[in-house]
Design a protein around this nucleic acid. Structure first.
Length: 365
DNA sequence: AAACGCCGCAACCGCCGAGGT
DNA sequence: AACCTCGGCGGTTGCGGCGTT
């Protein structure tokens, strides 16, 4: 059977449209309407196939097309709709006035998809994936520093445990604390009444679900939301270290920590929340008035698309294929002159995955 | 200044479903 | 029922711009 091509390609022009061709096409459609695309180029005097005319019109010349960069709201909408509709670009475009499916598809492939990948989010399933995170720092640490306590065999053998961000978060936080003066830290705990909060966590169901060695360790870890802006350099240093070590363990590209933009929270909220309520990877833990950092709540799309995904589990990770359909073949950055997008890039950089050199995973497994 | 590589985007390609004959 | 046309869709390509070396 075989269907005939949409048009006779012989003698028909291909490639970029000239302004003259655009003008001819626009003039014709303004007079006659789109009508029959097959016959349109002949009637209009264009050496193009009907399909090419239709694409040029629908994707570029249509008067109601909105050109220019995507707004943050538009991007949010795209992500949200994609999480529900998948690669149904036309359906997504139908909900974004002025945007074409082709434009949205291009924007997804060149910007959003890559950013999700770098943030450890599978752009197909919108689920977090450890294997999509930036693990280069792990390898660098393991390969370039002979004194590191982290060895690759342990790392590989501990994959299952590593997939649990709670354990990761806990482990690295504890490790960072071990690097500091623990006595000094405990003093700060007492001064700030952190121990009271600490004791409370023993009643938290989430804690009881942790391995016993974690429970013991947790009892040595500050878990509070105490305001400690007056705590001095130690606090700042610890905060910095904890940020360095804890950042990135949430797979949520939008998840940040309360301490990131607030002077009020001493302990990263991720640690706090991990023990109070195991993290949802589309968390809304931060309310910030800093316009430079998007509020996590702005990513309601993530959250709404994953209702019920409150408790991160290994199963949730394993539910996605280990080998992505989307190869990690892009090293591109989120390049755009928009300051807003630069800020987003900065924001996403919070999610870099790092493990301190002194981390001995065996201690926590 | 030239060469090179990367990236974004417009355009193309192939397939599909709906509808007509 | 079989075939054909058409519009639409998603995936892919390739060109031009831009930055880097």
């Amino acid at each position: 059977m075989g269907r005939t091509p949409c048009c006779d390609k012989n003698g028909l022009k291909k490639g970029p449209w000239t302004s003259e061709e655009d003008h001819v096409l626009i003039s014709y459609i303004q007079l006659h309407g789109p009508g029959n695309w097959r016959s349109l180029p002949k009637n209009a005097g264009l050496q193009r196939c009907g399909k090419s005319c239709r694409l040029r019109w629908t994707n570029y010349l249509r008067p109601d097309i909105k050109r220019g960069r995507f707004s943050f709201d538009e991007e949010e909408t795209i992500i949200q709709l994609h999480s529900v509709l998948g690669n149904k670009w036309s359906a997504i475009a139908a909900r974004l006035p002025g945007r074409t499916d082709n434009e949205i598809k291009n924007y997804w492939n060149t910007h959003i998809r890559k950013r999700l990948l770098r943030n450890g989010i599978d752009p197909v399933t919108h689920a977090p994936r450890l294997d999509l995170l930036d693990l280069s720092s792990i390898l660098t640490s393991a390969l370039c520093n002979p004194s590191t306590l982290l060895n690759l065999s342990t790392l590989v053998g501990s994959t299952q445990a590593l997939l649990n961000p709670d354990i990761l978060r806990l482990a690295t936080t504890l490790s960072s604390l071990k690097q500091e003066n623990s006595d000094m830290f405990l003093q700060q705990l007492q001064e700030n009444q952190l121990l009271n909060s600490l004791l409370q966590i023993q009643d938290v169901p989430a804690l009881s679900s942790l391995p016993s060695q974690f429970q013991n360790l947790v009892q040595q870890v500050p878990v509070c939301t105490t305001t400690t802006t007056s705590a001095g350099p130690f606090i700042n240093q610890t905060e910095q270290i904890m940020q360095e070590n804890v950042k990135g363990f949430s797979s949520n590209p939008t998840c940040t920590f309360s301490c990131q933009n607030s002077q009020e929270n001493f302990v990263p909220s991720s640690l706090n929340e991990s023990l109070v309520s195991l993290p949802n990877f589309y968390c809304n833990s931060t309310t910030t008035t800093d316009p430079k950092v998007p509020e996590p709540g702005e990513y309601s799309g993530f959250q709404s698309a994953n209702n019920g995904y409150q408790n991160f589990s290994i199963d949730s990770v394993m539910s996605t294929p280990l080998m992505s359909q989307d190869p990690l073949n892009s090293s591109s950055t989120y390049v755009n002159s928009s300051s807003t997008e630069d800020e987003r890039e900065c924001y996403s950089s919070l999610l870099k995955f790092e493990i301190p050199e002194s981390l001995d995973i065996d201690d926590f497994l």
